[in-house]
Amino acid sequence: MESVLQTFISAVPQATAVWLAILLALAVAVAAASLPRGVTLPEPVAEANRFADRLEAAATDAAEAAGRRRAEWLAAQQAVDEAWTAYEQASDDARRIAAATAFPLMSRRRKPGENVDRQRYLHRAATELCRTQDLSIAQLNDVFAHRGWNPRLHPVQQEAELHNAVRAHRFEAYQRAVEIERAAWRGAEAAAEALRGLRAEAAAARLHGPAEESTEQQVFAEHWTPAELPAAA
């Protein structure tokens, strides 16, 4: 009788352990079944790192773009300075020639063919100025079409008119250079702002990764906590 009792007493812990294992398996099954189907537990740290890597790669591309935009802006600034220098030179030349023509020319009877020579001089001088980019193609066309130009003027007077046209052309070129420089500056500022934003987002993604992990772990804990397991009494 005693041997039977001892056998029963020694079997009680084993049976208890078996029952506890069964209850634990049932609790895990119930908790898994409570999760929505098709939902897998996220990997917050790895996902945050992958997101930060993508942001950093985009920031690298943005840095290259910002460098190109800044180089374009610096080149545009140089072009503005050169255009202004060219305008100042043209303005000085125009004033100097205008001063030389302040005295009236002697009126005399023109020789036969002199008007043709004056016209040729005007066309030749305008063509040379256009070749050196001191006159535009549109201005050269006006000269040859005699739109606003008198081919019969004395060469000294034609020289003064040509340099006035050069001054106007150089000023228009300066204004275009200023517009290009302003657009280049806006592009450089936009590229720099985009770069700053991407770098800030990448840094935030690196910094907030652990916080996202703890939040997701809390969500998992709400689905399955030790308190839901049956008591092992």
Rank of each mutant, 00 (worst) to 15 (best):
L135A: 08
V4H: 00
L5H: 00
R152Y: 08
R196W: 02
E213V: 02
E2W: 00
V39M: 05
A75M: 07
H208L: 15
F8K: 00
V116Q: 10
A232N: 07
F103W: 10
A32K: 11
I9C: 00
E181I: 02
R109S: 11
Q78G: 12
E88P: 02
A63H: 13
A27V: 02
A205Y: 09
A29G: 14
L207M: 14
V12G: 01
W73Q: 06
T16H: 03
S34W: 12
T7M: 00
A191C: 05
P151M: 05
A27N: 13
R69V: 00
V219A: 14
A31Q: 13
N164Y: 06
E72R: 07
A203Y: 02
T16M: 05
L135I: 09
D117R: 13
A59Y: 05
T132N: 06
V30R: 15
Q6V: 00
H123S: 08
Q217N: 11
A79S: 10
A32H: 09
L162T: 08
V166D: 05
E179T: 15
R120D: 11
H169D: 13
H163Q: 15
R199E: 11
H163G: 01
E222N: 14
P226T: 07
L135G: 04
R70L: 10
V219K: 15
Q175A: 09
A194R: 15
E213D: 15
V4L: 05
A52V: 01
P42V: 04
E88D: 12
T16L: 05
P230A: 08
R176F: 08
A205C: 11
I97Q: 07
F171V: 03
W224Q: 04
E64Q: 11
P155Q: 04
A100R: 15
G209M: 09
R54G: 08
Y121Q: 07
A184Y: 05
Q217D: 14
A66R: 01
A102G: 15
R69H: 00
R206A: 07
A83H: 03
A188E: 08
H123R: 13
H123T: 04
V39Y: 06
P230V: 05
D93L: 10
R70D: 07
A192W: 05
Q175K: 10
R176T: 13
A160C: 04
V166I: 14
D142L: 01
Y87K: 10
E172I: 09
A191N: 04
D93F: 03
P112N: 06
A31P: 07
E216G: 01
A205L: 08
E189F: 10
P104N: 09
A191T: 03
A204D: 13
P210K: 07
E228M: 15
W185H: 15
M106I: 13
H154A: 12
L162Q: 10
W224P: 01
V18S: 13
T101N: 15
F51M: 01
V28W: 07
R118D: 10
Q133L: 14
R152W: 04
P226L: 13
T7G: 00
S10E: 05
Q119R: 15
T40N: 08
Q77N: 12
L5F: 00
T132W: 04
A233K: 04
R167H: 08
Y174R: 06
L20H: 14
L140E: 04
Q175I: 11
V178N: 06
D53Q: 05
A62V: 03
A190T: 09
A168V: 13
R170M: 15
E228T: 14
V12Q: 11
E82S: 14
R120T: 11
R69F: 01
L23Y: 03
A46R: 15
A57K: 12
I9N: 00
